[in-house]
C-alpha cells in the first residue's frame, strides 16, 4: 500500500562510508583505489538522513508506522555509516557487503544499489546525498532513477510531501530557481542547503543498539559478481599522481601599506 492511499511512508536513505576529509586522503594500490582506513558517514549524506527523518516526522514519525531504512554498500566497516544513521533516528538498516563489490564505479554502484532496492521493495522515497565526498560525481542518484524507472527530483534544497503523495522540491542553478514536483515513488537527492542535520542524542545512541540491520551479499541479491566491482565497472583509473602540496609563500603584516604591497605583488606576477 502506498503512502498516497493511506499506508505508512517508507523512506530509504542511501548513506556512504567515506574517508574523512580532515585527514590526508590517499589513492593506493594497482587500481588507484582510495585508502578507506579513516572513514566516517559522508557529511553530505547526513542531510539526506535529516530530510528523511523530517518527512516521516511530519506525519507522526516511527510511532505511526513510518520507516526510514538506511542502506549502505561498502566493506565491513561501512556498517558504521548505517549505525550513525540509526543513532540519528533511522528505524532500520541494510548493509550490502561483498568482497566482489570492491572497486565499483558509479555504474556498478548504481546497479548494486538498484538491485538491493528492488530486492527490499516497497519504498516510497529513495533519498540520497548531493554527492559522495570521496567520488564527488553526483551521478549515482540519476543512475538509480534511470535503472529503477522512477522520476528523479535531485539536488533539491527544500522538500515537502503533500497528503496526496506529491513531492515538491526546489532546485537552484546559477541563473534560475526551479520548483519541481514528482509523484511517489521517486528518487531524491538533497543539497547541504536544507536544515542542518541533527546530532545523535543519548537516547538515539542507546536506542540504535536495538535496531535491526540486515547484511546482504551478492548471492542474496542474485547479482552476478562479473557485473559489479572492478570487473563490472565501465570506467578505469589508469594513473594517479599526488599533486605536490602547496607551500606557504610570503606573509606580511599590515603596517599601513599592505594594500599597495598587494598591488606590487600582483604587478610582479603580471596579474594586473
Amino acid at each position: 500500500m502506498s503512502v498516497a492511499s493511506g499506508g505508512p511512508l517508507k523512506v530509504l536513505v542511501l548513506v556512504k562510508h567515506v574517508p574523512d576529509a580532515q585527514f590526508d586522503r590517499h589513492l593506493a594500490g594497482a587500481d588507484h583505489s582510495i585508502d578507506r582506513s579513516e572513514s566516517i558517514l559522508s557529511e553530505l549524506d547526513e542531510y539526506a538522513i535529516e530530510s528523511a527523518l523530517q518527512l516521516i516526522e511530519a506525519r507522526g514519525g516511527a510511532k505511526a508506522g513510518h520507516t526510514v531504512t538506511a542502506l549502505t554498500m561498502g566493506p565491513e566497516r561501512a556498517a558504521a555509516a548505517v549505525k550513525k544513521a540509526l543513532q540519528m533516528g533511522a528505524t532500520d538498516g541494510v548493509h550490502v557487503c561483498d568482497p566482489a563489490l570492491a572497486g565499483s564505479d558509479a555504474a556498478a554502484t548504481s546497479l548494486a544499489l538498484a538491485t538491493a532496492i528492488n530486492h527490499l521493495g516497497g519504498f516510497d522515497v529513495v533519498l540520497a546525498g548531493m554527492a559522495s565526498t570521496d567520488g564527488e560525481t553526483s551521478i549515482v542518484p540519476a543512475q538509480l532513477a534511470e535503472r529503477l524507472g522512477l522520476p528523479q527530483l535531485t539536488m533539491a534544497s527544500a522538500l515537502e510531501l503533500g497528503d496526496d503523495g506529491v513531492l515538491t522540491g526546489r532546485r537552484d542553478s546559477d541563473t534560475t530557481s526551479t520548483t519541481l514536483q514528482a509523484t511517489l515513488p521517486a528518487v531524491v537527492s538533497v543539497t547541504d542547503q536544507g536544515e542542518e542535520p541533527r546530532y545523535p542524542n543519548f537516547k538515539g545512541i542507546m536506542g540504535a543498539k536495538k535496531k535491526k540491520t540486515v547484511t546482504l551479499a551478492l548471492s542474496d541479491l542474485g547479482l552476478d559478481a562479473a557485473h559489479v566491482g572492478v570487473a563490472g565497472s565501465w570506467t578505469h583509473v589508469e594513473d594517479a599522481q599526488a599533486r605536490p602540496p602547496r607551500t606557504a609563500g610570503t606573509v606580511i603584516t599590515d603596517e599601513g601599506d599592505a594594500g599597495v604591497q598587494l598591488v606590487d605583488f600582483l604587478a610582479d606576477k603580471k596579474l594586473l
Binding site: R246, A248, V251, T253, G259, V260
Partner: peptide, 25 residues
C-alpha cells in the same frame, strides 16, 4: 599555509587601499 602572498590585516583597510592603488596605476 597555501597562500603565495598573505597579508595579516583587516579586510576593511587592505581591500580598499588595493582597489584605490590599482585604479591609480
Amino acid at each position: 599555509e597555501i597562500a603565495d602572498f598573505g597579508i595579516v590585516g583587516d579586510v576593511r583597510t587592505v581591500l580598499p587601499q588595493a582597489a584605490a592603488e590599482i585604479k591609480r596605476r
